[in-house]
């Protein structure tokens, strides 16, 4: 069984970017979050396709040359999950 992340369907996510920071607003939950460039890159990845946590880490390393620590990625994903931006799916 593996665990993936995917964008929650049916609700728009608004963005407003100032330099390296972006505020995002989820029109379903009404939650607002502030993301840095990496946060936005991760959001873009998950919005484009369903990915496992490790796949996200690899993408970021390949494209942005940043090695994400285990904790920081998990924390960000959990936060995006809590406000309903992304969701966890399990496939057998």
């Amino acid at each position: 069984m593996s665990e993936y992340w995917e964008a929650v369907a049916g609700f728009e996510v608004l963005r407003k970017t100032w330099g390296s920071e972006s505020a995002i607003y989820h029109t379903g939950s009404g939650d607002t979050q502030l993301l840095d460039e990496l946060g936005i890159a991760i959001l873009n990845l998950v919005q484009a396709q369903r990915l496992e946590t490790e796949e996200i880490r690899e993408h970021i390393l390949r494209k942005h040359k940043v090695e994400l620590e285990g904790d920081s990625l998990a924390r960000l994903l959990a936060e995006l999950n809590r406000s309903g931006v992304i969701t966890r799916v399990q496939t057998p």
């Binding site: 100032w18 330099g19 920071e21 505020a23 009404g30 607002t32 502030l34």
Partner: peptide
């Protein structure tokens, strides 16, 4: 930074969330 001030004002607003 504007982003941080955005969050600060949102948190100190009485009806930011009502206005969606």
């Amino acid at each position: 930074s504007p982003g941080k001030m955005f969050m600060h004002v949102a948190e100190n607003s009485f009806n930011y969330s009502v206005l969606g």
